[in-house]
């Protein structure tokens, strides 16, 4: 059992939790993920590590409520326990001094981008950060990102905060202003359509772009192959070969289709959980 030490509510659907997991904290690195299961009947879901504290033995996760498990997790509070929490999984981000790196976080993807940006800056890179969200209420960690990056640009899709525009609009401006030859690497993490759009843009400029993929997983250790994705025409497992890949090589359509395969079941589970939640037992909705 893994204790939730802190909970922070960024918005009604985006939440942060600091979880006591010393084994994971001891060895994890930026870019890796954990798999958690909140109760005995629960599913295993992957979440990228948003931060860690080796001394305190804690892992920070930030998640958006998109289904039954994340909704139930969101209903849990500090002091509650998560049944299973395993990691660090996947390969760490490749960190070296590339020169100038454009680091982009969209939506809840701001969280996993953060430790990578920090490491890149520590490695001597000039880190240009771009973070974007749909609307002001969904924005978070602007302060932490400002610290992790050399410079930070903020945008919202609807213009409710700082400026109006997608992250790709901001990226385009930065690439034009800085000059594509002065940017050595792009890193983009966020919802799949956003990462795909980023890759379409950077492809025009011939800028290598690393993305962190969120695929469906079961074990997360290379055993089941549920998370397989074609990268450059070769089948890769996101859990052990990734989660980071060259975004220009990823078969985005295949990834999106595989991710949607269980949508009906996910919807069914979610609705059922809501019906159960409407009971009068003051259970708080969590199991």
């Amino acid at each position: 059992m893994y204790k939730i030490l802190e909970k922070e509510v960024f918005s009604p659907i985006i939440k942060l939790m600091v979880v006591e997991a010393p084994k994971v904290a001891k060895s994890c690195q930026a870019g890796q993920f954990v798999i958690l299961r909140i109760h005995e009947e629960g599913e295993r879901i992957p979440l990228t590590i948003a931060d860690f504290d080796r001394k305190k033995g804690t892992i920070t996760i930030v998640f958006q409520e998109v289904g039954k498990t994340t909704e139930q997790l969101g209903a849990m509070e500090a002091g509650d326990y998560i049944k299973d929490f395993v990691g660090p999984l996947g390969l760490p981000s490749h960190i070296e001094n590339f020169g100038t790196v454009l680091v982009v976080g969209g939506g809840v993807g701001i969280a996993p981008v953060h430790p990578i940006a920090r490491e890149l800056k520590n490695a001597g890179n000039h880190v240009i950060g771009v973070i974007g969200s749909r609307t002001k209420d969904l924005m978070f960690w602007e302060d932490k990102m400002r610290e992790a990056c050399s410079e930070l640009h903020v945008t919202t899709d609807d213009g409710s905060y700082v400026r109006k525009g997608f992250v790709t609009d901001v990226m385009k401006e930065i690439i034009e202003d800085t000059g594509k030859d002065n940017i050595n690497l792009v890193l983009a993490i966020g919802p799949q359509p956003m990462m795909r759009a980023c890759c379409n843009l950077t492809k025009e400029y011939g800028l290598k772009t690393i993305v962190s993929l969120n695929a469906l997983m079961v074990d997360g250790t290379g055993m089941c192959g549920c998370c397989r994705v074609s990268v450059g025409g070769v089948t890769k497992f996101v859990c052990v070969d990734g989660p980071e890949f060259d975004g220009h090589e990823v078969d985005w359509l295949e990834l999106a289709r595989r991710g949607a395969y269980f949508r009906e079941e996910e919807q069914r589970a979610r609705e059922r959980a809501k019906e159960e939640h409407s009971c009068q037992c003051e259970c708080g909705g969590g199991k």
């Binding site: 192959g225 549920c226 397989r228 074609s230 949607a260 395969y261």
Partner: peptide, 15 residues
């Protein structure tokens, strides 16, 4: 082989 509905036996049995 990466179409939806193609499982490895490991995935099928693990699920």
């Amino acid at each position: 082989e990466n179409l939806c509905g193609v499982y490895s036996a490991n995935e099928f049995l693990t699920r």
